[in-house]
Write a protein that binds this DNA or RNA. Structure first.
Length: 182
DNA sequence: AAGGTGATACCA
DNA sequence: GGTATCACCTTG
């Protein structure tokens, strides 16, 4: 009875309904969920998500959609549950989870999972790159997120690396960080 | 404190 | 076509 529930609950992939809500609702819910990367050889890396940031709409002056829809950010306008990848500083691919019901650009940057503390280090460790642009987390065989019964507290701060944005958006506390377990 | 690195987006 | 701009990480 105990082992039964372990294997069922701990390996439950999140469905589209999880992602197709407001980005500010989904972002904190993502903390503690298990990011799973499956490689061609069948091996898997499973890491609890510990840090995320929300980017919401064209009026959010820190969001890539602030100048409207382009080829790069187009996937942000899709229904939640797909992946938005972009390259930054010529070296690092950023992993973003698109959320919402569609026709509105919003996504969550995954900044940390497991022991990987930066968004660039995480994608390097998981071998995530441009080929994951548009990947569907509900159906993909190589990348998805699983539910976790973990209960955890978190705190919020302003987002990182967006100093160019007007104060209102620079200071808004849309970074969500899992509290350390002591 | 600063440099490496390249896709994207904009202008022309 | 050219150029400015980055949701970073490492090294010193």
């Amino acid at each position: 009875m105990h082992s039964f529930s372990n294997s069922l609950i701990l390996k439950m992939r999140l469905g589209c309904e999880f992602y197709q809500k407001d980005v500010l609702d989904v972002a904190p819910l993502l903390l503690g969920k298990i990011l799973v990367r499956r490689f061609d050889d069948g091996s898997e890396i499973r890491l609890p998500i510990v840090e995320v940031e929300a980017y919401k709409g064209e009026e959010d002056l820190a969001c890539h959609a602030r100048f409207g829809k382009t080829t790069r950010n187009g996937i942000m306008y899709e229904q939640g549950g797909v992946v938005y990848m972009f390259l930054i500083y010529g070296m690092y691919w950023m992993l973003n989870i698109v959320t919402g019901a569609g026709d509105f650009p919003e996504a969550i940057l995954v900044r940390g999972a497991g022991l990987y503390n930066g968004p660039g280090k995480l994608t390097r460790a998981l071998h995530l790159d441009k080929s994951f642009y548009g990947e569907n987390l509900v159906t993909s065989e190589r990348l998805w997120i699983e539910d976790s019964p973990m209960l955890a507290s978190y705190h919020t701060t302003p987002r990182i690396g967006i100093g160019y944005a007007a104060a209102k958006w620079r200071d808004i506390p849309w970074r969500f960080v899992l509290d350390e377990i002591k």
